[in-house]
């Protein structure tokens, strides 16, 4: 008899459980469906020298990171010093993807702030970024030797993220 009246309380208890778990999640962070899949291919002009091309095939068989950035992105400026530091460690090469940017400002940016990238692809129209499922800069992908996306970080990289999320996922050391 009484259980019937306790039903609402029971349902509510389950809801509270979900809310509690929900509090520790960020609903706006959307995980990439690309993880574990082959990374998109691209061939774009190189920011440093637009007569050259940067292609995904250049990095075939090599682990590397792809960092999406732009000069209009405030967070990217913050992130830049972290990228320089990571590049100095020489663990994996970083490929830049300059997203929906102006070429000259991008060139000035790299000249002034330093260039952590092995090469930077210039994605003026944002078409390659769509293939990568980019929805905000900065974003950073880790691509393994088989060309599969192993990890994606949304937002600014920090040394902490580098050490805890990227390093453990990198196979051995190349070079």
């Amino acid at each position: 008899m009484m259980w019937k009246f306790l039903l609402p309380a029971g349902v509510f208890a389950i809801l509270v459980g979900f809310f509690f778990v929900g509090l520790s999640r960020d609903p706006s962070q959307v995980p990439s469906p690309l993880i574990g899949k082959v990374a998109p291919t691209y061939s774009l002009p190189r920011v440093e020298d637009t007569t050259q091309k940067v292609s995904s095939s250049d990095f075939a068989g090599k682990q590397h990171m792809v960092n999406v950035w732009a000069t209009w992105c405030v967070e990217c400026r913050k992130e830049h010093s972290v990228l320089l530091e990571i590049a100095k460690k020489n663990v994996v090469p970083i490929v830049g993807l300059d997203w929906k940017d102006e070429l000259t400002s991008a060139q000035i940016w790299l000249a002034q702030l330093g260039n952590p990238y092995l090469a930077t692809a210039f994605d003026e129209k944002g078409r390659v970024a769509i293939d990568f499922g980019v929805y905000g800069a900065p974003e950073t992908f880790l691509i393994d030797a088989e060309g599969k996306v192993r990890y994606k970080h949304i937002g600014s990289l920090t040394m902490d993220v580098w050490e805890h999320e990227f390093l453990p996922r990198i196979d051995g050391r190349i070079k």
Binding site: A70, W72, C73, V74, E75, G136, A137, P138, I154
Partner: peptide, 14 residues
């Protein structure tokens, strides 16, 4: 650039 692109950095600031 567009105002909306600035929105992205806002989002990332939380």
């Amino acid at each position: 650039m567009s105002h909306m692109l600035k929105a992205i950095s806002f989002l990332l600031f939380g």
